[in-house]
Amino acid sequence: MTDNERLGIEWACARLINLYATLNDQARWDEVVALYAPDGLMTRPTAPDAAIVGHADLLAAFTSRPPRTTQHVCANIVVSVESVDTASATSAILLFTAPDQPPLVGTYRDRFVRIDGRWLFSERRGALTFSTAA
């Protein structure tokens, strides 16, 4: 693999993380789900032990939530290229949900797979960095 190929994979995976946050904030659920491999797995930072697997269950999980305004901010994205078709990443996330509430601070550990030339999440595992319990 050349340096340019590695950089291209890193860029594509970092873009996927940022696109996910943007589409999520716009409640474009079909497009969010399409960022996952068909058997993709997600855990929310607020429920790190509750895996949601597959397009149908992912869509149901997103659409079952009441509508709300959110703003996700992604930072410290570090992508590790494993092969021409697999990669992983870690990132930090801030989730703003209301002007009078502190943001949730968390992390994601992602795994990516290239299917038919397109990078997708195979796993997106979230966790909170700071507990919201009083």
Rank of each mutant, 00 (worst) to 15 (best):
N24D: 01
V81R: 05
A75F: 03
D30W: 07
L59F: 13
A50F: 12
I93A: 02
T63R: 01
A134P: 15
G54A: 15
R68Q: 14
A134V: 14
I115G: 00
P99M: 12
A60I: 09
A87P: 10
V105L: 10
F130L: 10
R15N: 15
H55W: 10
P48S: 05
Q101N: 14
L94Q: 12
D85F: 00
S88P: 15
A12Y: 09
E10D: 01
V113N: 00
T132V: 13
V84K: 09
T70R: 08
L95T: 07
E10P: 08
I93L: 11
H72F: 02
A133M: 02
D110T: 13
D100G: 10
R65E: 06
G54S: 14
E31G: 07
T63L: 08
A87V: 05
R6A: 02
V73Y: 12
G106Q: 04
R65I: 10
A60E: 03
T129P: 00
F62S: 07
C13P: 09
E82H: 15
P99E: 04
D39Q: 14
L58Q: 03
T90R: 14
P66N: 12
A50K: 15
M42L: 13
L104M: 07
P103A: 07
R111L: 13
Q101H: 15
G106E: 03
I17Y: 06
L95C: 06
R44E: 00
F96S: 06
T63K: 06
N18W: 00
S83V: 08
F130M: 05
T86F: 03
A34S: 14
S64T: 10
T107G: 07
D49S: 13
A98H: 15
A14G: 13
V81G: 09
H72C: 00
R15C: 09
R114C: 11
M1Y: 02
E123H: 09
F130W: 13
R111K: 10
M1K: 08
G117A: 02
T132M: 12
F112Q: 11
F62A: 05
R28E: 12
A127W: 08
L120R: 08
T86M: 11
P66D: 10
R44H: 04
A61H: 05
V84Y: 04
R109D: 14
A75N: 10
C74Y: 05
A56I: 12
E10C: 08
N24Y: 06
F130K: 07
V73F: 12
D49Q: 13
L94C: 07
Y20V: 03
F96M: 15
M1F: 02
A56P: 07
L58P: 04
A37W: 07
I115D: 00
V32H: 04
P38E: 11
A133P: 01
D100A: 14
S80W: 08
P103H: 07
R114H: 00
V105P: 01
D57C: 05
V81C: 04
P45W: 04
D85H: 07
P99W: 13
A87M: 06
V33P: 05
E5F: 01
V113G: 02
P45M: 04
